[in-house]
Design a protein around this nucleic acid. Structure first.
Lengths: 339, 339
DNA sequence: TTGAAAGCGCTAACAA
DNA sequence: TTGTTAGCGCTTTCAA
């Protein structure tokens, strides 16, 4: 910038004004500075600018998800990005797997780079001790699940109602023997979906058949194994509710192997690509992860703006806002199989 | 940091040394400083550090893909992230769609934040004029396709050979009437895969049946439409080669609609989730996008290190390196359908 | 082993 | 409308 000023024969501050499109510079100087900048291939240094500016905003937010390659995470990411783009915000991303060490490292990496805020799908692995600490130093918004005991902005779906609706749909089709496969017990989402399952069963006056309840499954293979074993026993359910997309895929794999995919009904939670192209097409309780991402980012931007207005790091004091993006049933073929 | 120094009763520089784990500080002072930092909830400001440091590295790289929600892009992203993690590099990501304006904006957004390098899946839309400009100012590596006329580091797959193998596989099964569906003509990858198709046909002494060649398709729906129309005419191919994953999905949809998915053979390029769970399971020429991402990031880090060693922005002068991550055929069921 | 002073690239505050 | 000066949080350089 100094070089540009020298070449254009103006002061540093004038170049700064031109670069930042501040008003009150004569057109003659504007074009002179622009020519000089062009000639020198000048690229403004946003990090230096940020250091000096009063707001200290980096116009960068951090996104922490389980795995960027996972369909759900990627859709949330796309939503966050969409919302960020309109505000010229850049997005730092990181996958934290189910690893509390990585979760902590990423927070450090992001805060030391002075992100303006964090959108987090917490791993839940360390009981979220990280998020209960006094202060991370930046505003943040949780997605999909809130850490236990933390009152913070979050964007959730109505897991319990969603699961209830999915199971009720199977009950309506005449099923009475419905197995449940659920995700990690560390996650509230898994718990809530299980409660939805219980709600639906008890609503129909049915008892829970414990042999058909398998919780704490962490991936598709685990679901496949469970169903394989289930099918090997005498007493088979007539329908299966798989409370997460990877689990539904795993179940489908096992059913297809056993050539029972046209005999046993299936409803999944979370939609997934090609669910409608399988045979039978899979009925799911669908979330809208992209909308969730957009909403989370908007909530974060509001929070950041609030902090600006309040002129202090008082983020934690303000009322936490919870936004629910509802799930909805998509009926395809797999749930229309009769008992 | 000043506050920490004051509280610990030492100089700024001593705090700096402790924070950066520089040797030569007495253990007494180290622990005193650490206590003070803890007490004040001190978080180092990496951006300020970067501003003053000699190397001016931000330990941040930028990743530009078509769409983070797309399966291929997301896998590349996961690979880049994996390679970055080991080096404590953060990753800024952005989707550029097929939009040259966004591509340019993102480059500006990333360079003004002083990323150390860029991993780019170029959109190809503006003939890559952007990348032919004198100098972006940072090292970069291209993935999947290199902009025309630009000699730069890139990580590619052997599209032509891959496509040839896929088509030859159909020929081996006895097919003679093989349709081709290809992606955007702006992309070299699409051209190369088409050439592989031509290679295979001419290798078998077959002429190209122009009505069965449909190039420049940009999404799954376009492929579905093409196949619908193709099936409505009298002369049907007995097999289809779809040169991109979305196109293969679109083709499958059309075949399934017409209930011809067990009559007409199909081979896709790029693997996709659940391809093996469709009925019939789809045979594909698979890339390894995650490995591609890892390799691209490694190439970038080497390039950055080279620049460091050379102590100048001489990146453009060094020999471009091209790394090929080969594609390989995964035979499932859809290609075993006989003519 | 420790510290003082200068300055990275930029903008805030003020002055002309 | 334009410029001057100081300083953001940190590291470099050099001196003690």
């Amino acid at each position: 910038m100094r070089d540009v000023a020298a070449l254009a024969g103006v002061s540093l501050k004038t170049v700064s004004r031109v670069i930042n499109r501040e008003p009150g510079v004569s057109t003659a100087l504007v074009s002179k500075v622009q020519r000089a900048a062009d000639q020198l291939d000048y690229r403004p240094d946003f990090t230096a600018s940020n250091l000096r500016r009063a707001d200290r905003r980096t116009s960068t937010v951090g996104l922490m998800v389980e795995d960027v390659a996972n369909e759900f995470s990627a859709a949330v990411h796309a939503g966050v990005e969409e919302a960020a783009r309109g505000r010229n915000m850049a997005v730092l991303t990181a996958s934290i797997a189910e690893d509390p060490v990585r979760e902590r490292d990423v927070v450090r990496a992001f805060t030391s780079r002075r992100v303006d805020g964090l959108v987090v799908v917490p791993s839940g692995v360390d009981q979220n001790a990280l998020w209960n600490e006094r202060n991370i130093g930046v505003p943040w918004v949780f997605v999909d699940r809130a850490p236990r005991g933390v009152a913070a902005d979050c964007v959730l779906t109505n897991n319990r109602e969603g699961a209830r609706e999915g199971v009720r749909h199977l009950l309506d089709a005449g099923h009475r023997d419905i197995a449940f496969l659920g995700g990690s017990l560390r996650l509230d989402t898994a718990q809530e979906r299980y409660e939805g399952y219980l709600d639906a069963l008890s609503g129909a006056g049915l008892a829970v058949h414990q042999e058909w309840v398998h919780r704490n499954l962490h991936n598709a293979d685990a679901a496949t194994d469970v169903i394989r074993r289930l099918l090997a026993t005498g007493e088979r359910p007539t329908a299966i509710f798989a409370a997460q997309n990877l689990l539904a895929m795993g179940v489908f794999r096992a059913l297809r192997e056993a050539d029972l995919h046209h005999q046993i009904a299936l409803v999944g939670y979370d939609d997934f690509a090609l669910a409608d192209m399988l045979d039978p097409a899979i009925t799911v309780v669908a979330q809208d992860p992209r909308a969730i991402g957009v909403r989370a980012a908007e909530l974060l931007f509001e929070r950041i703006a609030d902090d600006d207005a309040a002129e202090g790091p008082a983020s934690a004091d303000r009322e936490p806002r919870v936004h629910v993006v509802p799930s909805y049933l998509i009926v395809r073929e797999s749930s229309l199989i009769r008992p």
